[in-house]
């Protein structure tokens, strides 16, 4: 596919998602949460997935990790990681794949730490379970790991509640990169954090990424944050990708009306104060077509005329 050839790092994609379709199957009706989504992430590339709640971005992350539970079903498409078919992995292969090849930091990651175990015990657990190191060796490595995210190794003896939210999140990120995975999935890693802490965590992730060279799938609804961190990004709406390009291109020249609305939802911190509209209330996009290349490396789902394939019940005033 054309899209998978456009990657920032090497030409060999680490992750290649093709025509992924995920359905939530209910007794009476089913919903397509992810509808024929294709993208690829190159080595050392940071790929961003933007969109609002319910657009299917977390479902994609969970599909890649094979974490989907009933009633969600992968109805079609393929996910390949370094040439291996993720969807065909046996439970034993999956166990190795998760954490060693791909690690994920969840939205509420800081609450995913076990409150009755010290940070050290939880990190040591990773090394003894997945890498088979001795306890002593694991402890030494756990200390190094905390130093990597600039937490005092003495904190290995602390319990999660003794750390601040930002420190907990950093500890979780340290745990995620413990086994040097080649892909790190970050699902809204900073939503619960203050802006200064958020900035720090993002800087940390950037540093780690430069140092360890892993690829990143970065999921967020914050467009400003995404453009700052990602090389390439895709914007999702209703289970479809509506636009994908280099992050700077999307920022400088958003082409799809939904992307424009998302960009408009974040007031700038510089320049004159101009009225913004966000997404006009009641606007819905239906039957989003496949992406076409509008500019080199800039793929957009076509939208007919003005306003685009829109179901505008009430453009003025009424809330969505």
């Amino acid at each position: 596919m054309t899209i998978s050839q456009v990657s920032f790092g090497s030409h060999e994609p680490v992750l290649d998602v093709k025509d992924l379709t995920v359905k939530y199957i209910g007794d009476t009706r089913s919903t397509t949460a992810v509808d024929h989504v294709s993208f690829s992430i190159g080595t050392g590339e940071v790929f961003g997935l933007a969109g609002e709640s319910g657009c299917g971005k977390s479902t994609i992350a969970n599909s890649i990790m094979r974490l989907l539970k009933d009633p969600a079903k992968i109805a079609g498409g393929s996910i390949s990681f370094g040439g291996k078919d993720v969807l065909a992995m046996s439970p034993e292969e999956l166990r190795r794949f998760r954490w060693q090849d791909v690690a994920m930091v969840f939205q509420s990651a800081m609450n995913s730490l076990n409150p009755v175990l010290t940070i050290g015990e939880q990190i040591v657990d990773i090394f003894t379970t997945h890498a088979g190191y001795s306890r002593k060796e694991s402890l030494r490595r756990a200390g190094e790991l905390l130093e990597l995210v600039r937490i005092d190794p003495a904190r290995l003896k602390s319990y999660p509640h003794q750390l601040s939210g930002g420190m907990r999140q950093r500890a979780v990120i340290a745990m995620a990169v413990a086994l040097k995975p080649s892909l790190l999935i970050l699902d809204e890693p900073t939503t619960a954090l203050d802006v200064v802490v958020q900035q720090e965590i993002m800087a940390q992730i950037k540093d780690l990424q430069r140092e360890l060279g892993f690829s990143v799938l970065f999921i967020t609804h914050d467009m400003s944050l995404m453009v700052e961190l990602s090389h390439r990004m895709a914007v999702m709406y209703g289970g479809r990708i509506v636009e994908t390009a280099k992050a700077q291109d999307v920022y400088a020249n958003p082409r799809h009306p939904y992307t424009q609305a998302l960009m408009g939802a974040f007031p700038p911190l510089t320049g004159p104060r101009i009225p913004l509209t966000g997404l006009p209330d009641g606007v819905k996009f239906r039957n989003i077509p496949d992406l076409t290349e509008e500019a080199p490396g800039h793929f957009v789902a076509p939208f007919g005329g003005e306003p685009p394939a829109v179901d505008s019940a009430n453009l003025e005033g009424a809330a969505r």
């Binding site: 802006v195 958020q198 900035q199 914050d222 400003s224 944050l225 700052e228 911190l269 510089t270 320049g271």
Partner: peptide
């Protein structure tokens, strides 16, 4: 410090990380 921490692609990289660390 607060202003420097707000993500804004329009001024990406204009803030000195060393200065920010000092402030913090």
């Amino acid at each position: 410090l607060l202003v420097s921490a707000v993500p804004d692609p329009a001024r990406a990289g204009t803030y000195d990380p060393v200065r920010r660390a000092e402030l913090r």
